[in-house]
Write a protein that binds this DNA or RNA. Structure first.
Length: 827
DNA sequence: AGCACGCCGACT
DNA sequence: GTCGGCGTGCTC
């Protein structure tokens, strides 16, 4: 239908809808609503639409109007997917805010926001024509192969055909076959969500209403011992639970399903299907009984008072001060009023103790939303929140759940960098987005941490946020004693034993003798970063990224941490033939091994990215440590977060220097946070703990500030530095990364791009510069940074300039394939 | 994000 | 010639 034809025949006063599609296209699309569907359309429902020639999508309606499209013929909505909205207007406002603030498309936000179970897309499938005759002449080899496959498999997807023919481009061939009417397209939307169904068993009438008649049933079965056992098992199970699964009953009575089937025939049992939750439910309803400390009471009162005129409060409480207890009180107040609460946590902190603790108190009022949930579980939580689930504990993406009466958001470990998503877009910060979400819902926000981020503390100082402090540990336990050990000095005196100072080793063995446990923190994983040739210094590089491969002892191979590329160990140096290859650097795995030499009697465990990969691996290690099957836990960042153990006498930081050496304006801040957090694991609940920090450069001011637990000193010194170099919190940063697989082309494009930015924004633009790792996954990178004054208008203009510059550069011949990533407020 | 079109070099 | 790779532009 041409545009003119359409305008001639278009019905008067038709309904049109604006639709968001879950893809990275920058704009919304307008579809026409067929007369028969007009009644069913509303904001926030998904509809099936066609985009392009064959793709079908589930798009979201976000506007309904009568404005006739001027420049194109609208396609019709094909069908209605939802009877009721799946997205509220508040949610959509959050999406819009994120898209604007973080410079990405609304479709990208939709992609991140909806669980994939709610995002439908078509897979082009083809079927064989019923008229097809295997003896038909005139087919070439490839066509024949497809027909053969189709006569066996019934239908094939585009990717199936690609595999069968072992070639990428199959569409022309498919089109040809369609034209010849050998095959047909089969387009269908598949609903990915199917509730989990289990078969359950219950008694039939009359037994169900008259349990006293059960004796008769037993008599009736007396000839079959197995059936009697099954009935007995049923009676036992029914005392403690309402729903009895067939499999469970079979297992308990040790009978197979044929026995149960026979009992169905005898009209004692019947089977029925039940839709069950995939989310673990917590039955125990124990209550946290101990009283609040005076400090906690004060903090609560202060928070309540501040919330009368401020919407955001920073709760700055030292490790072990009992912030969680304060949250619990606030949550309790909220749910008593029937309000919803969102408790945001960094991914890694979510996996265990804190969840268990809150579940103990709030039981099934809490839904837990983390990244290891599968699609079905995500959709289930989505639906639960929609129907009013009162508390959600979750990672950054739980921000997008369909709250309708959200009144309190807690962002725990507010400083944590994992609240910021950096790839893919939307590159949003969940802490900052949470504050906007709270604004939409008229909710209050508590930002809790022992080590506030510079930005947040600055906001509190500027009175933008309220500030509540808890300076003492719960139960009057002292802050740990911190000892800074000069590793350089020991090295000079030849006392240093591999990576351990004598101070650390002595303290460790003393602690073990006292029956205490220890945590050692090392900020690197793997055995040794590189395998080097002793003769010429050669090391094996990744073929996709410009980094040396890392040696992994467990799998005994070399790996790239950036793209996952793996390679065998070379037996000799390929460059000079030298057979002596050396391990350089040290990681958690090596620490674990070497510690075994110095402390042979200790049970040593390791917790890092490699050992917590399995679904329950993380919990298993924590349990082993809790049950004291591990004496010393060696780990990366993971050991710093959200773990509460009551028998840790010693915490060791193996090398503070590694943390301070990063070429990044946040490295001091991160070092302070990490060391303070890991120190906080020492001596909680039990007695005063000890922290040993090893360093080759003991004069660094941050170490002294950590030593004295001097947050304020650290903050002011850091603030001055940030002011000198125009960094946040005084300025705002936008980071732009350009990527392409051809370095020369990338350089030229970046030059053009940066020139446009510099013409408009002058010296605020820094770069383009080659980053520390110049190539990742086969793509060369160039980085630009823009330092902007905190002026909303200027920031808005800057984002527009970036968008225009991107469009301009991409319009030039050859540059269209350069990828541009914009990261607002990078971490 | 797909997907098709069109341009180009590499083959039967 | 035609196949397949790759860059470009469009999708209501």
């Amino acid at each position: 239908l041409s545009l003119e034809q359409y305008h001639k025949i278009k019905p008067a006063n038709s309904h049109y809808v604006s639709i968001v599609l879950p893809i990275a296209v920058p704009k919304l699309y307008t579809y026409i609503v067929p007369e028969e569907l007009v009644e069913s359309i509303q904001f926030g429902i998904r509809v099936e639409v066609q985009l392009g020639r064959s793709k079908l999508y589930a798009g979201l309606i976000i506007d309904i109007h009568h404005q006739v499209p001027e420049d194109h013929t609208p396609k019709p909505i094909l069908s209605i997917i939802d009877q009721h909205p799946i997205v509220y207007p508040e949610q959509f406002k959050l999406w819009q805010w994120i898209a604007h603030y973080y410079s990405c498309s609304i479709g990208e936000v939709m992609n991140a926001a909806l669980p994939s179970g709610l995002k439908l897309s078509s897979e082009t499938k083809v079927i064989l024509s019923p008229m097809y005759d295997p003896n038909l002449q005139g087919l070439d080899d490839k066509e024949f192969m497809i027909c053969e496959a189709l006569s066996i498999q019934n239908e094939l997807s585009t990717s199936d055909i690609q595999k069968i023919l072992n070639q990428k481009t199959v569409y022309p061939l498919m089109q040809r076959m369609i034209n010849k009417k050998i095959i047909y397209l089969k387009e269908e939307l598949k609903e990915k969500y199917t509730p989990k169904i289990v078969v359950c068993v219950r008694l039939q009438e009359p037994y169900i209403s008259n349990p006293e008649l059960l004796q008769e049933a037993f008599d009736k079965l007396s000839r079959s011992t197995r059936q009697v056992e099954a009935l007995m098992a049923y009676v036992q199970l029914s005392r403690t639970q309402k729903v009895i699964r067939r499999a469970e009953l079979g297992k308990k009575a040790n009978v197979d399903s044929s026995v149960l089937k026979a009992m169905v025939k005898k009209e004692i049992f019947e089977f029925y299907d039940k839709e069950i939750s995939r989310i673990g439910v917590y039955e125990d309803d124990l209550k946290d009984t101990f009283d609040l400390s005076a400090q906690q009471e004060t903090a609560l009162t202060e928070l309540r008072t501040h919330f009368q005129d401020k919407n955001v409060a920073l709760l700055h409480g030292v490790t072990g001060s009992g912030k969680t207890r304060v949250y619990i009180e606030l949550i309790q107040e909220a749910i008593q009023k029937g309000e919803q609460v969102l408790y945001l946590l960094p991914e890694i902190a979510l996996t265990g103790q804190i969840v268990a603790r809150l579940q103990k108190i709030f039981g099934n009022d809490i839904a837990v939303f983390h990244s290891r949930l599968n699609n079905h579980e995500r959709v289930e939580i989505w639906k639960k929140v929609f129907s009013g689930q009162s508390i959600v504990m979750g990672v950054r993406s739980s921000l997008f759940l369909p709250f309708k009466n959200l009144k309190l958001i807690i962002v725990d470990e507010e400083h944590d960098t994992s609240f910021k998503q950096f790839d893919p877009a939307p590159r949003y910060n969940a802490r900052d987005s949470a504050i906007y979400l709270a604004h939409l819902h008229q909710a209050k926000v508590v930002l809790g941490t022992a080590t506030p981020s510079i930005e947040t503390y600055y906001n509190a100082q500027q009175k933008k946020y309220a500030l509540v402090e808890m300076k003492e540990r719960f139960g009057g336990i002292q802050m740990p004693e911190i000892i800074i050990v000069d590793a350089k000095d020991e090295w000079k005196k030849r006392k240093l034993q591999s990576h351990f100072t004598t101070v650390l080793l002595d303290e460790l063995s003393a602690a073990l003798e006292r029956g205490e446990q220890a945590i050692l923190f090392q900020n690197r994983r793997g055995y040794a970063p590189t395998l080097n040739c002793k003769n010429c210094g050669w090391s094996k590089q990744c073929k996709n990224c410009d980094v040396s491969l890392t040696f992994h002892k467990f799998s005994h191979n070399l790996r790239c941490h950036y793209c996952g590329y793996q390679s065998q160990l070379p037996t000799a140096c390929p460059s000079c033939g030298e057979r002596d290859l050396n391990l350089k650097g040290f990681g958690t795995e090596k620490i674990e091994d070497e510690l075994k030499i110095y402390l042979p009697d200790a049970n040593i465990g390791r917790m890092d990215f490699d050992t917590v990969k399995g679904k329950n691996a993380h919990a298993t290690i924590i349990n082993a440590f809790e049950e004291k099957r591990i004496d010393i836990l060696v780990g990366t960042q993971m050991v710093t977060k959200g773990l509460d153990f009551d028998n840790v006498g010693i915490v060791g930081v193996l090398s503070a220097d590694h943390l301070l050496q990063f070429p990044d304006f946040r490295s001091t801040e991160r070092a302070f946070q990490l060391i303070t957090q890991v120190s906080g694991r020492a001596g909680r609940k039990f007695k005063r703990g000890k922290v040993i920090i090893q360093s080759f450069n003991t004069t660094h001011p941050v170490l002294k500030e950590v030593l004295n637990n001097n947050f304020s000193g650290f903050f002011h010194r850091e603030l001055e530095e940030r002011l000198d170099f125009n960094y946040p919190p005084f300025n705002r940063l936008i980071k732009i990364v350009l990527k392409h697989k051809k370095p020369e082309l990338l350089n030229h494009g970046a030059k053009l791009f940066s020139q446009i930015l510099k013409d408009r924004m002058g010296k605020r633009v820094i770069g383009p510069a080659v980053p520390g790792i110049p190539r990742v996954r086969g793509q060369y990178l160039l980085v630009m940074m823009i330092k902007l004054e905190k002026n909303p208008k200027k920031i808005k203009t800057a984002k527009e300039i970036i968008l225009k510059a991107t469009q301009f550069m991409k319009a030039q011949k050859g540059f269209s394939t350069i990828r541009v990533n914009v990261d607002v407020d990078p971490q």
